[in-house]
Design a protein around this nucleic acid. Structure first.
Lengths: 124, 124, 124, 124
DNA sequence: GTGGTCTAGACCACA
DNA sequence: GTGGTCTAGACCACA
Protein backbone atom coordinates (compact mmCIF):
# COMPACT_ATOMS: atom_id res chain seq x y z
CA UNK A 1 0.00 0.00 0.00
CA UNK A 2 1.43 3.33 -1.13
CA UNK A 3 1.02 6.24 1.26
CA UNK A 4 0.47 9.71 -0.17
CA UNK A 5 0.88 13.06 1.57
CA UNK A 6 -1.06 15.64 -0.43
CA UNK A 7 0.57 18.47 1.56
CA UNK A 8 4.10 17.36 0.70
CA UNK A 9 6.15 19.52 -1.68
CA UNK A 10 6.97 16.27 -3.52
CA UNK A 11 4.45 15.95 -6.39
CA UNK A 12 1.91 13.18 -5.92
CA UNK A 13 2.92 11.42 -9.17
CA UNK A 14 6.49 11.35 -7.85
CA UNK A 15 5.33 9.83 -4.57
CA UNK A 16 3.57 7.10 -6.58
CA UNK A 17 6.75 6.45 -8.57
CA UNK A 18 8.81 6.24 -5.37
CA UNK A 19 6.21 3.99 -3.74
CA UNK A 20 6.18 1.45 -6.56
CA UNK A 21 9.96 1.42 -6.73
CA UNK A 22 10.10 0.72 -2.99
CA UNK A 23 7.68 -2.18 -3.31
CA UNK A 24 9.79 -3.72 -6.07
CA UNK A 25 13.00 -3.20 -4.08
CA UNK A 26 11.45 -4.78 -0.98
CA UNK A 27 10.29 -7.76 -3.05
CA UNK A 28 6.59 -7.08 -2.43
CA UNK A 29 6.19 -6.79 -6.20
CA UNK A 30 7.91 -9.54 -8.19
CA UNK A 31 9.28 -9.14 -11.69
CA UNK A 32 6.69 -10.20 -14.27
CA UNK A 33 3.84 -9.69 -11.83
CA UNK A 34 0.85 -7.56 -12.86
CA UNK A 35 0.38 -4.42 -10.77
CA UNK A 36 -2.78 -2.71 -9.58
CA UNK A 37 -4.59 -0.99 -12.46
CA UNK A 38 -4.63 2.78 -12.78
CA UNK A 39 -8.30 3.01 -11.80
CA UNK A 40 -7.96 0.69 -8.83
CA UNK A 41 -4.89 2.41 -7.44
CA UNK A 42 -6.46 5.86 -7.88
CA UNK A 43 -9.45 4.74 -5.78
CA UNK A 44 -7.28 2.95 -3.22
CA UNK A 45 -5.10 5.95 -2.42
CA UNK A 46 -7.73 8.58 -3.22
CA UNK A 47 -6.01 10.46 -6.02
CA UNK A 48 -6.82 11.35 -9.63
CA UNK A 49 -6.40 8.57 -12.23
CA UNK A 50 -4.47 10.99 -14.45
CA UNK A 51 -1.89 11.32 -11.70
CA UNK A 52 -1.46 7.53 -11.44
CA UNK A 53 -1.25 7.30 -15.22
CA UNK A 54 1.50 9.91 -15.27
CA UNK A 55 3.48 7.87 -12.75
CA UNK A 56 3.01 4.57 -14.64
CA UNK A 57 4.06 6.17 -17.95
CA UNK A 58 7.22 7.50 -16.34
CA UNK A 59 7.99 4.08 -14.82
CA UNK A 60 7.47 2.52 -18.24
CA UNK A 61 9.86 5.06 -19.74
CA UNK A 62 12.43 4.05 -17.14
CA UNK A 63 12.00 0.37 -18.09
CA UNK A 64 10.60 -0.55 -14.69
CA UNK A 65 7.07 -1.26 -15.85
CA UNK A 66 5.95 -2.83 -19.14
CA UNK A 67 2.50 -2.33 -20.60
CA UNK A 68 0.49 -5.09 -22.30
CA UNK A 69 -2.21 -3.39 -24.33
CA UNK A 70 -5.63 -4.20 -22.94
CA UNK A 71 -4.15 -6.23 -20.09
CA UNK A 72 -2.45 -3.66 -17.91
CA UNK A 73 0.94 -2.91 -16.42
CA UNK A 74 3.52 -5.53 -15.36
CA UNK A 75 6.78 -5.31 -13.46
CA UNK A 76 9.50 -5.45 -16.11
CA UNK A 77 12.12 -8.19 -16.05
CA UNK A 78 15.27 -6.68 -14.57
CA UNK A 79 13.24 -4.00 -12.78
CA UNK A 80 14.91 -4.50 -9.40
CA UNK A 81 18.40 -4.21 -10.87
CA UNK A 82 17.50 -1.07 -12.82
CA UNK A 83 16.04 0.58 -9.73
CA UNK A 84 19.05 -0.40 -7.64
CA UNK A 85 21.48 1.02 -10.22
CA UNK A 86 19.62 4.31 -10.53
CA UNK A 87 19.25 4.68 -6.75
CA UNK A 88 22.98 4.15 -6.29
CA UNK A 89 23.83 6.64 -9.03
CA UNK A 90 21.48 9.33 -7.68
CA UNK A 91 22.19 8.87 -4.00
CA UNK A 92 25.95 8.78 -4.53
CA UNK A 93 25.74 12.26 -6.03
CA UNK A 94 23.66 13.49 -3.08
CA UNK A 95 25.95 11.78 -0.59
CA UNK A 96 29.10 13.35 -2.01
CA UNK A 97 27.51 16.78 -2.41
CA UNK A 98 26.32 16.77 1.20
CA UNK A 99 29.64 15.43 2.47
CA UNK A 100 31.55 18.15 0.63
CA UNK A 101 29.34 20.92 2.02
CA UNK A 102 29.69 19.51 5.54
CA UNK A 103 33.49 19.36 5.24
CA UNK A 104 33.49 22.96 4.01
CA UNK A 105 31.39 23.93 7.02
CA UNK A 106 34.00 22.61 9.39
CA UNK A 107 32.72 19.11 10.09
CA UNK A 108 35.68 16.71 10.04
CA UNK A 109 35.89 13.43 8.14
CA UNK A 110 35.94 11.44 11.38
CA UNK A 111 32.57 12.85 12.39
CA UNK A 112 31.03 11.92 9.02
CA UNK A 113 32.34 8.36 9.41
CA UNK A 114 30.94 8.30 12.91
CA UNK A 115 27.50 9.27 11.65
CA UNK A 116 27.63 6.45 9.09
CA UNK A 117 28.54 3.88 11.72
CA UNK A 118 25.53 4.89 13.79
CA UNK A 119 23.01 4.30 10.99
CA UNK A 120 20.85 1.32 11.87
CA UNK A 121 19.65 -0.37 8.73
CA UNK A 122 18.71 -3.83 7.49
CA UNK A 123 20.03 -4.53 4.02
CA UNK A 124 17.44 -6.38 1.95
CA UNK B 1 29.08 38.91 -8.50
CA UNK B 2 26.11 36.54 -8.41
CA UNK B 3 25.57 34.39 -11.48
CA UNK B 4 22.04 33.46 -12.50
CA UNK B 5 20.95 30.62 -14.77
CA UNK B 6 17.51 31.54 -16.02
CA UNK B 7 17.06 28.04 -17.50
CA UNK B 8 17.70 26.31 -14.17
CA UNK B 9 14.77 24.63 -12.37
CA UNK B 10 15.99 26.45 -9.26
CA UNK B 11 13.93 29.67 -8.98
CA UNK B 12 15.89 32.86 -9.67
CA UNK B 13 15.13 34.32 -6.24
CA UNK B 14 16.53 31.13 -4.66
CA UNK B 15 19.70 31.47 -6.71
CA UNK B 16 20.05 35.02 -5.39
CA UNK B 17 19.57 33.77 -1.82
CA UNK B 18 22.20 31.07 -2.32
CA UNK B 19 24.55 33.55 -3.99
CA UNK B 20 24.43 36.04 -1.12
CA UNK B 21 24.89 33.26 1.43
CA UNK B 22 27.95 32.03 -0.48
CA UNK B 23 29.48 35.48 -0.55
CA UNK B 24 29.01 35.84 3.21
CA UNK B 25 30.44 32.35 3.83
CA UNK B 26 33.47 33.10 1.67
CA UNK B 27 34.06 36.37 3.48
CA UNK B 28 33.45 38.49 0.38
CA UNK B 29 30.66 40.20 2.28
CA UNK B 30 31.54 41.20 5.84
CA UNK B 31 29.07 41.43 8.72
CA UNK B 32 27.74 44.99 9.06
CA UNK B 33 28.60 45.81 5.46
CA UNK B 34 25.96 47.32 3.17
CA UNK B 35 25.08 45.11 0.21
CA UNK B 36 24.21 46.09 -3.35
CA UNK B 37 20.80 47.77 -3.47
CA UNK B 38 17.80 45.97 -4.95
CA UNK B 39 17.73 48.19 -8.04
CA UNK B 40 21.48 47.96 -8.64
CA UNK B 41 21.63 44.20 -8.31
CA UNK B 42 18.61 43.79 -10.57
CA UNK B 43 20.34 45.63 -13.42
CA UNK B 44 23.70 43.94 -12.69
CA UNK B 45 22.33 40.42 -13.06
CA UNK B 46 19.57 41.34 -15.49
CA UNK B 47 16.52 40.37 -13.46
CA UNK B 48 13.48 42.20 -12.13
CA UNK B 49 13.77 44.25 -8.92
CA UNK B 50 10.79 42.36 -7.46
CA UNK B 51 12.74 39.12 -7.73
CA UNK B 52 15.73 40.57 -5.90
CA UNK B 53 13.40 42.03 -3.29
CA UNK B 54 11.85 38.61 -2.68
CA UNK B 55 15.31 37.15 -2.06
CA UNK B 56 16.37 39.98 0.27
CA UNK B 57 13.13 39.75 2.28
CA UNK B 58 13.66 36.02 2.81
CA UNK B 59 17.27 36.61 3.88
CA UNK B 60 16.05 39.23 6.34
CA UNK B 61 13.50 36.75 7.71
CA UNK B 62 16.37 34.30 8.23
CA UNK B 63 18.32 36.92 10.16
CA UNK B 64 21.09 37.07 7.57
CA UNK B 65 20.33 40.58 6.35
CA UNK B 66 19.02 43.63 8.22
CA UNK B 67 17.22 46.50 6.55
CA UNK B 68 17.60 50.18 7.47
CA UNK B 69 14.70 52.30 6.24
CA UNK B 70 15.72 54.58 3.41
CA UNK B 71 19.29 53.34 3.53
CA UNK B 72 19.30 49.76 2.32
CA UNK B 73 20.23 46.22 3.31
CA UNK B 74 23.18 45.28 5.51
CA UNK B 75 24.78 41.97 6.43
CA UNK B 76 23.48 41.13 9.90
CA UNK B 77 25.85 40.50 12.81
CA UNK B 78 26.17 36.76 13.25
CA UNK B 79 25.17 36.12 9.62
CA UNK B 80 28.05 33.74 8.90
CA UNK B 81 27.34 31.61 11.95
CA UNK B 82 23.63 31.42 11.14
CA UNK B 83 24.33 30.30 7.59
CA UNK B 84 26.88 27.73 8.75
CA UNK B 85 24.47 26.30 11.32
CA UNK B 86 21.63 25.98 8.83
CA UNK B 87 23.89 24.42 6.16
CA UNK B 88 25.10 21.81 8.65
CA UNK B 89 21.56 21.01 9.78
CA UNK B 90 20.24 20.65 6.22
CA UNK B 91 23.18 18.77 4.75
CA UNK B 92 23.37 16.36 7.67
CA UNK B 93 19.82 15.26 6.89
CA UNK B 94 20.67 14.82 3.21
CA UNK B 95 23.90 13.01 4.05
CA UNK B 96 22.22 10.51 6.36
CA UNK B 97 19.28 9.96 4.03
CA UNK B 98 21.58 9.26 1.09
CA UNK B 99 23.84 7.03 3.20
CA UNK B 100 20.88 5.00 4.40
CA UNK B 101 19.57 4.44 0.87
CA UNK B 102 23.04 3.45 -0.34
CA UNK B 103 23.43 0.94 2.50
CA UNK B 104 20.00 -0.49 1.68
CA UNK B 105 21.10 -0.81 -1.95
CA UNK B 106 23.99 -3.02 -0.95
CA UNK B 107 26.83 -0.52 -0.73
CA UNK B 108 28.87 -1.35 2.36
CA UNK B 109 29.95 1.11 5.06
CA UNK B 110 33.60 0.75 4.09
CA UNK B 111 32.86 1.96 0.56
CA UNK B 112 31.03 5.05 1.87
CA UNK B 113 33.99 5.84 4.11
CA UNK B 114 36.28 5.39 1.16
CA UNK B 115 34.30 7.89 -0.89
CA UNK B 116 34.55 10.42 1.94
CA UNK B 117 38.32 10.02 2.15
CA UNK B 118 38.64 10.74 -1.57
CA UNK B 119 36.80 14.07 -1.42
CA UNK B 120 39.25 16.84 -2.14
CA UNK B 121 38.20 19.99 -0.37
CA UNK B 122 39.81 22.99 1.20
CA UNK B 123 38.28 23.74 4.57
CA UNK B 124 38.01 27.47 5.11
CA UNK C 1 -16.33 37.57 3.47
CA UNK C 2 -13.19 39.61 3.99
CA UNK C 3 -13.55 43.38 3.80
CA UNK C 4 -10.66 45.46 2.52
CA UNK C 5 -10.05 49.17 3.01
CA UNK C 6 -7.71 50.26 0.25
CA UNK C 7 -7.22 53.64 1.94
CA UNK C 8 -6.02 52.10 5.20
CA UNK C 9 -2.32 52.41 6.14
CA UNK C 10 -2.48 48.67 6.90
CA UNK C 11 -1.22 46.87 3.76
CA UNK C 12 -3.90 44.98 1.85
CA UNK C 13 -2.08 41.65 2.19
CA UNK C 14 -2.02 42.19 5.98
CA UNK C 15 -5.75 42.86 5.99
CA UNK C 16 -6.25 39.56 4.16
CA UNK C 17 -4.06 37.77 6.73
CA UNK C 18 -6.05 39.31 9.59
CA UNK C 19 -9.34 38.50 7.86
CA UNK C 20 -8.54 34.81 7.42
CA UNK C 21 -7.31 34.56 11.00
CA UNK C 22 -10.57 36.12 12.23
CA UNK C 23 -12.65 33.67 10.23
CA UNK C 24 -10.74 30.74 11.71
CA UNK C 25 -11.02 32.16 15.24
CA UNK C 26 -14.76 32.69 14.83
CA UNK C 27 -15.19 29.14 13.56
CA UNK C 28 -16.41 30.25 10.12
CA UNK C 29 -13.48 28.34 8.64
CA UNK C 30 -12.98 24.87 10.09
CA UNK C 31 -9.63 23.08 10.37
CA UNK C 32 -9.05 20.89 7.33
CA UNK C 33 -11.50 22.88 5.21
CA UNK C 34 -10.42 24.20 1.80
CA UNK C 35 -10.43 27.98 1.58
CA UNK C 36 -11.36 30.21 -1.35
CA UNK C 37 -8.74 29.96 -4.09
CA UNK C 38 -6.33 32.82 -4.77
CA UNK C 39 -8.02 33.75 -8.02
CA UNK C 40 -11.54 33.58 -6.61
CA UNK C 41 -10.76 35.66 -3.55
CA UNK C 42 -8.94 38.23 -5.67
CA UNK C 43 -12.07 38.87 -7.78
CA UNK C 44 -14.37 38.70 -4.73
CA UNK C 45 -12.58 41.46 -2.87
CA UNK C 46 -11.34 43.28 -5.97
CA UNK C 47 -7.59 43.00 -5.47
CA UNK C 48 -4.71 41.47 -7.42
CA UNK C 49 -4.07 37.71 -7.20
CA UNK C 50 -0.43 38.43 -6.29
CA UNK C 51 -1.59 40.27 -3.18
CA UNK C 52 -3.78 37.36 -2.08
CA UNK C 53 -0.92 34.97 -2.81
CA UNK C 54 1.41 36.98 -0.58
CA UNK C 55 -1.09 36.70 2.27
CA UNK C 56 -1.63 32.96 1.80
CA UNK C 57 2.12 32.28 1.65
CA UNK C 58 2.62 34.12 4.93
CA UNK C 59 -0.23 32.19 6.56
CA UNK C 60 1.34 28.96 5.35
CA UNK C 61 4.65 30.02 6.83
CA UNK C 62 2.85 30.58 10.13
CA UNK C 63 1.40 27.06 10.01
CA UNK C 64 -2.17 28.35 9.72
CA UNK C 65 -2.73 27.22 6.13
CA UNK C 66 -1.44 24.15 4.26
CA UNK C 67 -1.14 23.98 0.49
CA UNK C 68 -1.85 20.90 -1.63
CA UNK C 69 -0.23 21.11 -5.07
CA UNK C 70 -2.78 21.57 -7.80
CA UNK C 71 -5.66 21.54 -5.31
CA UNK C 72 -5.42 24.69 -3.24
CA UNK C 73 -5.07 25.96 0.30
CA UNK C 74 -6.59 24.29 3.38
CA UNK C 75 -6.91 25.36 7.00
CA UNK C 76 -4.16 23.54 8.88
CA UNK C 77 -4.89 21.27 11.81
CA UNK C 78 -4.23 23.22 14.99
CA UNK C 79 -4.73 26.55 13.19
CA UNK C 80 -7.10 27.98 15.80
CA UNK C 81 -4.76 27.18 18.68
CA UNK C 82 -1.77 28.67 16.86
CA UNK C 83 -3.65 31.90 16.15
CA UNK C 84 -4.90 32.13 19.73
CA UNK C 85 -1.39 31.61 21.15
CA UNK C 86 0.15 34.26 18.91
CA UNK C 87 -2.65 36.77 19.64
CA UNK C 88 -2.15 36.30 23.38
CA UNK C 89 1.62 36.71 23.10
CA UNK C 90 1.38 39.86 20.98
CA UNK C 91 -1.46 41.54 22.84
CA UNK C 92 0.09 40.84 26.24
CA UNK C 93 3.14 42.84 25.18
CA UNK C 94 0.93 45.71 23.96
CA UNK C 95 -1.19 45.55 27.10
CA UNK C 96 1.76 45.74 29.47
CA UNK C 97 3.52 48.45 27.45
CA UNK C 98 0.40 50.61 27.43
CA UNK C 99 -0.27 49.96 31.11
CA UNK C 100 3.26 50.95 32.04
CA UNK C 101 3.08 54.21 30.08
CA UNK C 102 -0.28 55.04 31.64
CA UNK C 103 1.07 54.41 35.15
CA UNK C 104 4.05 56.62 34.36
CA UNK C 105 1.64 59.34 33.20
CA UNK C 106 -0.04 59.38 36.57
CA UNK C 107 -3.00 57.06 36.00
CA UNK C 108 -3.34 54.83 39.06
CA UNK C 109 -3.69 51.05 39.06
CA UNK C 110 -7.27 51.24 40.35
CA UNK C 111 -8.32 53.27 37.32
CA UNK C 112 -6.79 50.73 34.92
CA UNK C 113 -8.64 47.93 36.70
CA UNK C 114 -11.82 49.97 36.49
CA UNK C 115 -11.42 50.34 32.72
CA UNK C 116 -11.00 46.58 32.39
CA UNK C 117 -14.17 45.87 34.36
CA UNK C 118 -16.16 48.13 32.04
CA UNK C 119 -15.14 46.32 28.85
CA UNK C 120 -18.17 44.60 27.42
CA UNK C 121 -17.14 41.52 25.52
CA UNK C 122 -18.53 38.11 24.70
CA UNK C 123 -15.96 35.39 25.26
CA UNK C 124 -16.24 32.70 22.61
CA UNK D 1 21.02 61.71 24.73
CA UNK D 2 18.58 60.19 22.26
CA UNK D 3 19.32 56.65 21.14
CA UNK D 4 18.49 55.65 17.57
CA UNK D 5 18.15 52.15 16.13
CA UNK D 6 18.50 52.43 12.36
CA UNK D 7 17.31 48.83 11.94
CA UNK D 8 14.05 49.44 13.80
CA UNK D 9 10.78 49.45 11.83
CA UNK D 10 9.99 52.70 13.67
CA UNK D 11 11.10 55.58 11.39
CA UNK D 12 14.10 57.50 12.64
CA UNK D 13 12.24 60.83 12.72
CA UNK D 14 9.62 59.15 14.93
CA UNK D 15 12.35 57.88 17.26
CA UNK D 16 13.62 61.47 17.55
CA UNK D 17 10.11 62.71 18.35
CA UNK D 18 9.67 60.02 21.01
CA UNK D 19 13.12 60.75 22.44
CA UNK D 20 12.48 64.46 22.89
CA UNK D 21 9.06 63.81 24.40
CA UNK D 22 10.67 61.43 26.90
CA UNK D 23 13.26 63.99 27.89
CA UNK D 24 10.57 66.59 28.53
CA UNK D 25 8.46 64.10 30.50
CA UNK D 26 11.45 63.10 32.62
CA UNK D 27 12.23 66.76 33.31
CA UNK D 28 15.61 66.63 31.56
CA UNK D 29 14.34 69.35 29.26
CA UNK D 30 12.56 72.21 31.01
CA UNK D 31 9.80 74.33 29.50
CA UNK D 32 11.24 77.48 27.89
CA UNK D 33 14.68 75.89 27.57
CA UNK D 34 16.44 75.95 24.20
CA UNK D 35 17.09 72.51 22.72
CA UNK D 36 20.01 71.20 20.73
CA UNK D 37 20.06 72.65 17.21
CA UNK D 38 19.19 70.53 14.18
CA UNK D 39 22.78 70.44 13.00
CA UNK D 40 24.22 69.58 16.39
CA UNK D 41 21.73 66.81 17.08
CA UNK D 42 22.23 65.32 13.62
CA UNK D 43 25.97 65.07 14.28
CA UNK D 44 25.50 63.80 17.85
CA UNK D 45 23.29 60.88 16.92
CA UNK D 46 24.72 60.36 13.43
CA UNK D 47 21.64 60.96 11.31
CA UNK D 48 20.67 63.27 8.48
CA UNK D 49 19.78 66.88 9.37
CA UNK D 50 16.64 66.60 7.24
CA UNK D 51 15.43 63.80 9.49
CA UNK D 52 15.96 65.89 12.64
CA UNK D 53 14.24 68.82 10.95
CA UNK D 54 11.24 66.66 10.12
CA UNK D 55 10.97 65.63 13.77
CA UNK D 56 11.27 69.21 15.08
CA UNK D 57 8.65 70.47 12.64
CA UNK D 58 6.22 67.78 13.78
CA UNK D 59 6.90 68.63 17.44
CA UNK D 60 6.25 72.29 16.64
CA UNK D 61 2.97 71.32 14.95
CA UNK D 62 2.00 69.48 18.14
CA UNK D 63 2.75 72.56 20.24
CA UNK D 64 5.61 70.90 22.07
CA UNK D 65 8.37 72.95 20.53
CA UNK D 66 8.32 76.62 19.56
CA UNK D 67 10.65 78.14 17.01
CA UNK D 68 12.30 81.54 17.33
CA UNK D 69 13.50 82.58 13.92
CA UNK D 70 17.25 82.77 13.81
CA UNK D 71 17.58 81.58 17.41
CA UNK D 72 16.46 77.98 17.33
CA UNK D 73 13.90 75.67 18.93
CA UNK D 74 12.61 75.99 22.50
CA UNK D 75 10.48 73.74 24.67
CA UNK D 76 7.00 75.28 24.57
CA UNK D 77 5.27 76.40 27.75
CA UNK D 78 2.78 73.71 28.68
CA UNK D 79 4.78 71.07 26.73
CA UNK D 80 4.80 68.52 29.54
CA UNK D 81 1.05 68.71 30.03
CA UNK D 82 0.38 68.40 26.30
CA UNK D 83 2.60 65.33 26.04
CA UNK D 84 1.03 63.77 29.10
CA UNK D 85 -2.50 64.31 27.74
CA UNK D 86 -1.68 62.85 24.34
CA UNK D 87 0.14 59.85 25.83
CA UNK D 88 -2.85 59.08 28.04
CA UNK D 89 -5.26 59.38 25.12
CA UNK D 90 -3.18 57.17 22.81
CA UNK D 91 -2.19 54.53 25.34
CA UNK D 92 -5.72 54.23 26.71
CA UNK D 93 -6.89 53.21 23.23
CA UNK D 94 -4.07 50.66 22.97
CA UNK D 95 -4.69 49.40 26.48
CA UNK D 96 -8.41 48.81 25.90
CA UNK D 97 -7.87 47.28 22.45
CA UNK D 98 -5.30 44.81 23.80
CA UNK D 99 -7.44 44.01 26.85
CA UNK D 100 -10.45 43.29 24.65
CA UNK D 101 -8.50 40.93 22.39
CA UNK D 102 -7.03 39.14 25.41
CA UNK D 103 -10.49 38.68 26.95
CA UNK D 104 -11.76 37.32 23.62
CA UNK D 105 -8.83 34.88 23.57
CA UNK D 106 -9.91 33.39 26.87
CA UNK D 107 -7.76 35.35 29.32
CA UNK D 108 -9.92 36.29 32.31
CA UNK D 109 -10.24 39.75 33.88
CA UNK D 110 -8.51 38.55 37.07
CA UNK D 111 -5.40 37.62 35.12
CA UNK D 112 -5.25 41.05 33.45
CA UNK D 113 -5.50 42.71 36.85
CA UNK D 114 -2.79 40.42 38.14
CA UNK D 115 -0.47 41.48 35.32
CA UNK D 116 -1.08 45.14 36.17
CA UNK D 117 -0.27 44.60 39.84
CA UNK D 118 3.05 43.04 38.90
CA UNK D 119 4.25 46.01 36.84
CA UNK D 120 7.12 47.68 38.65
CA UNK D 121 7.28 51.35 37.77
CA UNK D 122 8.33 54.62 39.31
CA UNK D 123 5.88 57.42 38.58
CA UNK D 124 7.74 60.65 37.86
C1' DG E 1 18.82 57.82 -3.27
C1' DT E 2 16.63 53.47 -0.33
C1' DG E 3 12.73 49.58 0.30
C1' DG E 4 7.68 48.17 0.31
C1' DT E 5 3.27 47.56 -1.85
C1' DC E 6 0.40 46.85 -5.54
C1' DT E 7 -1.38 46.01 -10.24
C1' DA E 8 -1.66 43.62 -14.81
C1' DG E 9 -0.52 40.01 -17.17
C1' DA E 10 2.42 36.00 -18.90
C1' DC E 11 3.94 31.25 -18.37
C1' DC E 12 4.84 27.11 -15.87
C1' DA E 13 4.04 22.52 -13.20
C1' DC E 14 0.68 19.81 -11.12
C1' DA E 15 -4.08 17.46 -10.22
C1' DG F 1 -9.00 23.88 -12.36
C1' DT F 2 -4.90 24.89 -8.54
C1' DG F 3 -0.60 27.69 -6.86
C1' DG F 4 4.38 29.59 -7.98
C1' DT F 5 7.47 32.52 -10.48
C1' DC F 6 8.61 36.33 -13.05
C1' DT F 7 8.38 40.75 -15.56
C1' DA F 8 7.24 45.73 -16.20
C1' DG F 9 6.00 49.53 -14.25
C1' DA F 10 3.50 52.72 -10.91
C1' DC F 11 3.35 55.01 -6.45
C1' DC F 12 4.45 55.55 -1.69
C1' DA F 13 7.24 56.63 2.79
C1' DC F 14 11.64 57.47 4.47
C1' DA F 15 16.72 59.29 4.73
Amino acid sequence: MISIDIYSRIPIYQQVIDGIKSEVMLGWLKEGEQITSIRELSVEVGINPNTVSKAYLELERQGILAVATGKGYFVAPDAARRIRDSVIAEEKVRFLSAAEKLLQSGICREELEDWIRKIHCISP
